[in-house]
Structures are given as structure tokens and as C-alpha cells.
Nucleic acid binder design. Structure first.
Length: 371
DNA sequence: TACGGAAGTT
DNA sequence: AACTTCCGTA
């Protein structure tokens, strides 16, 4: 009954959302401890489907997966493993539980979650890595295209269909080949405000409306094969990545004082201060080698998305780059103590949830799955 | 364990 | 549209 007086203008009301500002402390990670359909976390508005798609406004499963994948805390539950874009659900029940919490579906389980994942097969967002248990693989290019009209707009503008140019080597990737690297995704996700005259989008040049995705793909095309376990999205992965000619480590995000190209939308809080992000370490601008304009495509008839790129573009919070954390003056490394078991934000009627089906189980408590 | 049809929900 | 729920099949 404690209705929120009013939502932030910038954040669109979810209509049914009953956001209750119960927690004074800010929630760093999977913010939605309160099963809110959307406010504050993970992906900026534009990362979600266009407004015209009412049914797709809530977080999508693959967003969520990416989100978990991005966080170290969950490496015991789900993690990148194997080929490029490949990930393993080490603890299916836990992932399902977390997903259920996020969606306010107390009865979620891996069986259901996996059904949803299977629907992604046809959508080309995901596919199964046969033979490997609980292992799936992202088709990043699709992921991007589906959600980033910018690219499509670029395509529309240039009049050419979106084509992914895997690195400087050209050549269209096969339908199953992972054409887009997580790094690219990164770049895309970190697209700053495009309407800003002062700031320049890393992948877009408003003046020409040309796609300017100049993020290099050192390992795509050529070294793609020998490359595995890439999506190092966090600041530290304790692993070495291939080196890049241009001191550009797509993986580095925190430590790198130079340009910390944010990965996927890190923690994106609907923070007013974040809006004032004046500068963004555009990947291209800094040490940008700037290769050829990059276009992405899946080869399949990626329908005509609406060219609303500019309108939807927003800034992203960049961790370790004067992002919201810095702006807030708060520390940003507080995401470790996150606990996702709270469903108190779920409207009791929305799901007819019984009392509290979600046990106050601690997070990834299971030892690493010694696969 | 994985797949996909069918119907239901938001 | 994007799941969620249920289920028969392999």
C-alpha cells in the first residue's frame, strides 16, 4: 500500500510496478531485490526493446544471464566457459531461483527456464552446445541487432544490409559463427549520449549518421578459433587475454587507467547524477585504431527495426571511469555482499505466490563445480 | 538431460 | 512478444 509518490520522470513507469523505496541503502547489483519490473539495474532503457513492444519491456532472460555472467559472485553458479560466448550453468537450480526472483516467479525452476532458453534457439540468440551439460552459447550479433536499433539505423542509412565484418579480414561469418564479440557488445552497450554535441559516441557519428563501430576485433576472423573464454566482463578475471596492438584491452575495465571501456551495461542505476556523465571514455576516441566501419548482421532477414537510434540512446554508467559510483562519492565495490533472495517487492497478487517459497538461502554456497 | 508442442499469462 | 507452465517424447 505504500505507493511510491511518483516515479522518476526519466524512468518509465512500468505501469504495474509498485516501486517501494524500502531500502535506503543502494543496491549495487542485481538491484531488483524487489521484484520490480525494471527500475534501476543492469541495462539502460534503450537496451530493452522499444517502447512499442509492451510485452518485452521487462528484463529478458538473456539480459539476466548476461548480467549474472558479468558478476564474479555468480561464477560458481554460471560462468563463461569453453568457446566464445559459451557459458555453463553450473548450478541450474540456483540460476532458476535467481531468475524466478527477478521475475517474481517463485515457482521457476530449471525446467521452465530452460524452456525459455530453448525458445532462443529459433531466435538465434542462443544455441545449445551439444554434448556439454547445461552449456549454451550466445550469438552475440543477434543479441545486439535485436536490441540495438542503432545498428539497424545505420544499415538503413547506408542502404546496405547489416553485415558483420569480422575483423580486418572481412568475410561474413556463418550463421552459427559468433560474429560479434563480447567486446563489441561492450562498445555498443557503452554508447554514450548521442545527442550530446560535446560528447562523441564511440560508435556513431551523428553528423554522418554513419556507424562508427571502430572497435577492433583482433581475435575475430583470424584468431577466433584459438580464442576462448572471452567475455571477461569484470574487472578481474585472473586470466590473460590476447594482447592488442593498440594498448586496447577490451577486457580490462577497471584497472586500466587508460580507457576502461565498460563492458555490457555494468551496473546501471537510474541515477540522476549518472545523467550528468560529461565524458565517456569512448573506445574509439582514446586509442582508437579505428578500423573500417563495422556493421553487424546475422545473415537472416533481420527485420526492419525502427530507426530510432538517436532517440533512445542514453548514457551508461561506467565503473571505474567516473561513473555513477564516482559521482555518487560512494564506493562501487560493494556488490559483493549482494544477496538475492528477497521477493518482498513482488506484488502478492501478481503471481498468487504463496508465503515465501524462496528460502533465504545464501548465494552461491556450493563449492565450485569440479567439472 | 534435452527438445519442442500447446495453452496460458502479462 | 516473451515468457511460464505442463507435458509427451527421445
Amino acid at each position: 500500500m505504500p505507493e511510491a509518490a511518483h516515479q522518476r520522470p526519466g524512468v518509465r513507469e512500468e505501469g504495474d510496478a509498485s516501486w517501494s523505496p524500502k531500502s535506503p541503502t543502494r543496491r549495487p547489483d542485481l538491484g531488483p531485490l524487489f521484484c520490480l519490473p525494471s527500475p534501476g539495474f543492469a541495462f539502460p532503457d534503450w537496451a530493452y526493446k522499444p517502447e512499442s513492444s509492451p510485452g518485452s519491456r521487462q528484463i529478458q532472460l538473456w539480459h539476466f544471464i548476461l548480467e549474472l555472467l558479468q558478476k564474479e559472485e555468480y561464477q560458481g553458479v554460471i560462468a563463461w566457459q569453453g568457446d566464445y560466448g559459451e557459458f555453463v550453468i553450473k548450478d541450474p537450480d540456483e540460476v532458476a531461483r535467481l531468475w524466478g526472483i527477478r521475475k517474481c516467479k517463485p515457482h521457476m525452476n530449471y525446467d521452465k527456464l530452460s524452456r525459455a532458453l530453448r525458445y532462443y534457439y529459433n531466435k538465434r540468440i542462443l544455441h545449445k552446445t551439444k554434448g556439454k551439460r547445461f552449456t549454451y552459447k550466445f550469438n552475440f550479433s543477434k543479441v545486439v541487432l535485436v536490441n540495438y536499433p542503432l545498428l539497424d539505423m545505420a544499415a538503413a542509412t547506408t542502404g546496405s544490409p547489416l553485415l558483420l565484418t569480422p575483423g580486418p579480414f572481412g568475410g561474413a561469418p556463418g550463421p552459427d559463427a559468433p560474429p560479434l564479440t563480447p567486446e563489441t557488445l561492450q562498445t555498443l552497450f557503452s554508447a554514450p549520449r548521442l545527442g550530446e554535441p560535446g560528447a562523441r559516441a564511440p560508435l556513431f557519428t551523428p553528423e554522418t549518421d554513419k556507424l562508427r563501430l571502430d572497435s577492433p576485433f583482433p581475435f575475430l576472423g583470424s584468431g577466433a578459433t584459438g580464442y576462448s573464454k572471452p567475455p571477461g566482463l569484470l574487472g578481474h578475471f585472473g586470466r590473460a587475454f590476447p594482447e592488442h596492438p593498440w594498448n586496447f584491452s577490451p577486457y580490462l575495465t577497471g584497472p586500466s587507467p587508460k580507457l576502461p571501456p565498460p563492458l555490457y551495461p555494468p551496473h546501471f542505476y537510474p541515477n540522476p547524477l549518472a545523467s550528468s556523465l560529461g565524458h565517456l571514455p569512448s573506445a574509439g576516441a582514446g586509442g582508437g585504431p579505428t578500423a573500417t566501419p563495422l556493421l553487424a548482421a546475422t545473415g537472416e532477414g533481420l527485420g526492419p527495426e525502427r530507426p530510432a537510434g538517436l532517440a533512445v540512446a542514453q548514457r551508461l554508467a561506467l565503473p571505474g571511469a567516473g561513473g555513477p559510483e564516482a559521482a555518487l562519492g560512494g564506493k562501487e565495490d560493494s556488490d559483493s555482499e549482494l544477496e538475492i533472495t528477497d521477493v518482498s517487492g513482488c506484488s502478492s497478487d501478481s503471481d498468487g505466490d504463496e508465503g515465501l517459497p524462496v528460502p533465504p538461502k545464501a548465494k552461491a554456497g556450493k563449492g565450485a563445480v569440479g567439472s
